[in-house]
Design a protein around this nucleic acid. Structure first.
Length: 482
RNA sequence: CGGGGCGUGGCGCAGCUUGGUAGCGCACUUGCUUUGGGAGCAAGGGGUCGGGGGUUCGAAUCCCUCCGCCCCGACCA
């Protein structure tokens, strides 16, 4: 552990510094020449690919298809939905020159694609028989942010954005909720990140949406991260873009639309939820390398140990993503630290003593435990251990969220706890109270939680607003957010 | 965009107060010896001192200006 301190600022000392140390030391990203932009390096991009394939499978299972819409959006299109423009205009990047000439109409680099998608959907939809339209796209978007942080908020980021049109309000609302559950599946099952699902308050809602659903996750320092959102757009966009269809009853009607997205911000969340002072800790399901084999091969034993390890690699390769570290220029100790920094869930140590005893040593990244395992039991033992690690990481994250979730009567109780955590309180529903909370504490209303039986439900008594103590309409989660 | 901090080989830093042409650790290259928690010895390579301008015989060092990164706030996935 002392050695790890050389490389990475301890989480407890300075969480932000720890985060930037880890993303750099684990070769996840590098800063690009233009402010606010980063390069996503291969190791991090691989994790993103696992997230993509997980979501893609979930989307396909519910009838969605992928497509691709253009990067540039004419100004006239972007400005068609009033609330939407207002919300996004401060952060839109514009292209004003092309082919060496000033353009007749400025083109926006998409900050999101509702407008251009809406324009196209209006052309494609004539009849109720054309509905629903269930399309997703994987793309990059640009939002000119004032303060950026690697993965969490960059000027350009990668994401998926789903855009659907439905015949009825009920169907569109169901779609919105269904997609939120798809994200919950990704977060909890695959990324091992527990979340609080909820509805955004009016002030935090997506520009142009009727209702925004969100999944809020708790980071290692108790702050919240919005990991995915799903929007019920009502008929706001269909009216603005004239998405109409002739219904069975012969009447021309506006469609009901939704949109939903998750971005490379998830990589930041993954790091901040699971990482520790030794570096990254990756859940096996998204680990580019699930098992690393480190040979301990000295002198005359070298070739024999390496041959044994290569056979081991072949044997395990059919089950898991395994890497054999054959580098001769580093000692085993160096390799241990190196792979721990990169978050590889399980390390197998193999030396002459192990071979003689017919065993290999398992070293788990989640808890640091080392255990000898009989070589004959290997593929099964590896599978079982990876499953345990996946569960253990979730359990640890959930335990922290539980430990840092508090029921409060008054928002000063959150201040007394240094605003660290999720504070469950009542809210009168007035924006004035949300504003006052933010001004005084920099906490925001993360969501109005939707509770299911397996969610956290900190108990509280009374039913007055935690800010003004007037009659409360909602239960809300207050927290500082990234 | 406001407040604060920092920019010196790839990384982390010293040198700046009191100007004299750049140094340390790690990393890198080569060789030999090594290898169960960041190996040792030896010989090497690598720097427009963030950019521009100014003061000066002379600037990493003093002055002006711009840029970038980090932190804390305001705005957002």
């Amino acid at each position: 552990m002392e050695k790890a301190l050389k490389e990475v600022t301890p989480k407890s000392e300075d969480f932000s510094k720890w985060y930037t140390d880890v993303v750099r030391k684990a070769d996840l990203m590098d800063y690009a020449p233009v402010k606010g932009f980063i390069v996503i390096r291969p190791y991090a991009y691989r994790i993103w690919e696992f997230i993509q394939s997980d979501l893609d499978a979930r989307f396909r299972a519910t009838g969605h298809q992928n497509a691709y819409f253009p990067l540039l959006i004419p100004q006239s299109l972007l400005t068609r939905e009033a609330e939407h423009v207002q919300g996004f205009s401060p952060e839109v990047a514009w292209v004003t020159r092309g082919g060496g000439e000033e353009l007749a109409e400025p083109l926006a680099v998409r900050p999101t694609s509702e407008t251009i998608v809406g324009e196209m959907y209006a052309r494609w939809i004539q009849s109720y028989r054309d509905l629903p339209v269930l399309i997703n796209q994987w793309s990059n978007v640009v939002r000119w942010e004032k303060a950026t942080r690697p993965f969490l908020r960059t000027t350009e980021f990668l994401w998926q954005e789903g855009h659907t049109v439905h015949r009825t309000e009920a169907e569109a609302r169901a779609e919105t909720e269904q997609q939120l559950e798809a994200y919950r599946g990704l977060l909890e099952e695959t990324l091992a990140i527990p979340v609080v699902a909820g509805v955004k308050s009016a002030g935090e809602r997506f520009a142009g949406a009727v209702e925004t659903y969100t999944l809020e996750a708790m980071m290692g320092d108790g702050r919240a991260l919005q990991t995915a959102t799903s929007h019920f757009l009502g008929q706001n966009f269909s009216r603005a873009f004239n998405i109409q269809f002739l219904d069975e009853d012969g009447e021309l009607k506006y469609g009901w639309t939704t949109s939903w997205g998750a971005s490379t911000r998830l990589l930041g969340g993954l790091i901040m939820v699971h990482g520790d002072d030794r570096g990254l800790r990756l859940p096996p399901r998204v680990a580019p390398i699930q098992v690393v084999v480190v040979p301990i091969a000295k002198g005359s034993d070298r070739e024999a140990v390496l041959a044994y390890c290569r056979a081991l690699q072949l044997r395990l390769g059919a089950h898991v993503r395994v890497h054999l570290d054959e580098r001769d220029e580093f000692t085993p100790g160096y390799k241990f630290n190196d792979w721990e920094m990169r978050g590889v869930p399980l390390r197998l140590e193999v030396g002459p003593r192990d071979i003689a005893r017919g065993q290999v040593v398992f070293a788990r990244r989640d808890n640091g435990e080392k255990t000898p395992v009989i070589a004959d039991d290997l593929p099964e033992a590896v599978d079982a251990t990876l499953n345990e690690i996946q569960k253990a990481l979730y359990a640890q994250a959930q335990a922290r969220m539980q430990a840092l979730s508090f029921a409060i009567q008054d928002y000063h109780e959150a201040v007394a706890r240094d605003r660290r955590g999720f504070f469950w309180g009542n809210w009168c529903g007035r924006q004035a109270c949300a504003d006052r909370l933010q001004e005084e504490t920099s906490m925001t209303i993360r969501c109005l939680p939707l509770l299911t039986e397996h969610d956290l439900q900190p108990q509280r008594s009374g039913n007055d607003c935690a800010v003004c103590h007037g009659p409360a309409e909602h239960r809300a989660v207050f927290a500082r957010a990234y």
